[in-house]
Design a protein around this nucleic acid. Sequence first.
DNA 1: CGGTATCCCAGGCGATACTG
DNA 2: CAGTATCGCCTGGGATACCG
Lengths: 122, 122
Amino acid sequence: MKCEKVTKCRLDAVADIIGSKWNLMIIWHLRDSTLRFSELQSKMCGINSKTITKHLRDLEKESIITRTVFPEVPPRVEYTLTEPGRGILPIIDAMLIWGGKFRHPVEGREGCERNRIASAGE
Amino acid sequence: MKCEKVTKCRLDAVADIIGSKWNLMIIWHLRDSTLRFSELQSKMCGINSKTITKHLRDLEKESIITRTVFPEVPPRVEYTLTEPGRGILPIIDAMLIWGGKFRHPVEGREGCERNRIASAGE
DNA sequence: CGGTATCCCAGGCGATACTG
DNA sequence: CAGTATCGCCTGGGATACCG
């Protein structure tokens, strides 16, 4: 039976990486600077450490980011985009542009749902 | 606390559409022709009708595809990409190109996981 | 600090059956 | 043909707690 087009399956594979919200965000946040675990976590609306770890590991496995551990006393781990990883940036840009063109601007006031509760009083 | 960048949240929204494997595939298959429900379904490794229906409805709601019902005796429903929808095509292209550049070609023999079972031998 | 382990629920998706 | 309904598994991901 098999799928009639390989294209589709390729797409399928690529979508596993590009298709994940979290992956996209990690890559995006790493766009112009190396970040540490905690920095990433806080930038991403306080995403769960379990979740972020998983995606970080995936991206590392896919050679999209590199993970550097500094064996210091207060442990430090830094994440950086690799070259292949940087190749995704233009794609994200395109997505954002598309979003800007066809979707209503979304003022930004609503932020992400995840910390609407946290910012409660706000 | 709030996310420091709106960009991220935008990305989040766009990822809801572009970030879904199925959505991507539907859009891709519609790239150069209108297709009927069953055509789409068979092109996509025999994806479940429930699943495909859901995504089709989502995309329709987002004005990425249009759904045309022909009130004929054997019912016919056709799906077509809208203009905004076509705007996603270049992005998918970029994804595919990226995939081709940085990931090993993936000969295609493995097809999609979903019917590896069907092709058993593996 | 940077995780891992555990629990748990909501949702995604497949299979199957049924309908207009 | 083009769905909808139901069931049931599995993963994603949040919360919490603990560790090197």
